[in-house]
Amino acid sequence: MPHPNAQPAEPVRTDLRNGLYLIVSAVSVGLALLIWWMASRNEWVNPLFLPSPPDVWSAFMTIATEGYKGTSLLAHIGASMQRIAVALILVLLTAVPLGILCGRIRLLRAIFDPFIEFYRPLPPLAYYSLLVLWFGIEDTSKIVLLYLGGFAPMFIAAVYSARRIPPDRIQGARSLGASRWRLYLYVILPSCLPDLLTGLRTAVGVTYATLVAAEMIAAVSGIGWMVLDASKYLRSDIIYAAIIIMGIIAILIDAGIRNLIQRVSPWAEH
């Protein structure tokens, strides 16, 4: 799919072409749904592996109207989103300032880099049991897990963004009277913003991917927990419905951030 925000050289023709590609994408999705429907209808595949689209739809309608295991669908989604949101807010509050400072001050970078580089490639599940040990089995350990997952990409984006600010910009700002904290607040932070939002996109992705793992242990709510719980009862229709819901939410969040990037930094190339 072409980038919807690409600067068109010839507006009319590009619009036309974008529309055409959009139609191709729609047809492609429609075709996949058709194959799915035919495969389940003609029982090419065991319905346990692949329930039919109407089955999934009715499973969706059931959980949407009656909820799942005593909790409404929106509450499940809300529980998951709340965990992600709290984790991401903590990430923004810590990784951004620390990353920017590390990007500007070589000494700080030397102090923190080894730890970040060490834990960054670790799969979050590897240390999850330790987190449960430390923070208990309730929500706190889940949020810490998501936080640690999101911290590394955000931190790295912040370091990178601070390091690539043109030196002339900093010097020019100092000549205009920006010193110390004003320099950070009025020049460095806005300079980093486009890269920070790109980092946020990555962090959201990682956090989202970790969510199901986080909700695997001792949860009674959340969209990820729903998938795992349904799998215990072989309710593949609910699994499919929940996965599709998760996918759509992810697309919406990503589109929202992309939109924000465009609005905040229309001059940057993305």
Binding site: A173, S175, S265, W267
Partner: peptide
């Protein structure tokens, strides 16, 4: 560096997130 000594760079070096007025008002 202080505002007493102004510098105009080879490349305009404006703050891209500020309008022309915002840039001029910065100092």
């Amino acid at each position: 560096p202080t505002p007493q000594v102004g510098v105009v760079f080879q490349h305009a070096n404006l703050f891209p997130w500020l309008s022309v007025a915002g840039n001029v008002e910065f100092g």
